[in-house]
Amino acid sequence: MLELIAVKGIYILMVFAAAAAFASSLLPNLFHGALALAAVLLAVAGLYLSLGAEFLAMVQILVYVGAVMTLVIYAVMLTGRLEETVTPSGRIQRAAAGVSCAIFFVLVCGVLLSTNWPAAPGGNPLPSVKDLGIDLMKRHVFPFEVLGILLFAVLIGALAAARREKS
């Protein structure tokens, strides 16, 4: 019984997230689009929970919903008189994009359903936060360090790009 409710909840979450995803790329007002993106990110955090990735769900909420969304909404408010951001693209461009997305969806869906994904028998054991930390510090330590350098470079680059130039 409880499992049935959980499964239904997951499907409801998926439908909600898909609707919000389309809203975030269709809504003419960018501010509404950004809020819809926040809804998608929260729903995906819920799906992470359903997949047993609790720590990742928390990181998703902290980093994405907390930091990235704040940045995006700040930028929307700094650059746009919101009413004037409504410049829908041409009808032909919209139709072409829709058709190509539909074709992409159908093609990948076909590949996805016809592929026999290799599966560990009975599924993998859920990694604890300790396992994640050990994996991050042992097997993936090089990309981890590179990512640190990248973040540092982006910090300096963003400051340099956004700085007001001396007149």
């Binding site: 998608v40 929307v76 829908p88 693209s89 461009q93 190509s100 992409f104 990948v108």
Partner: peptide
Amino acid sequence: FSLILFSAGIFGALTRRNALG
């Protein structure tokens, strides 16, 4: 589901006129 998310993202990236979009 994640394919749907990705398709919606591609559609947005193709049709938005605003760089933030």
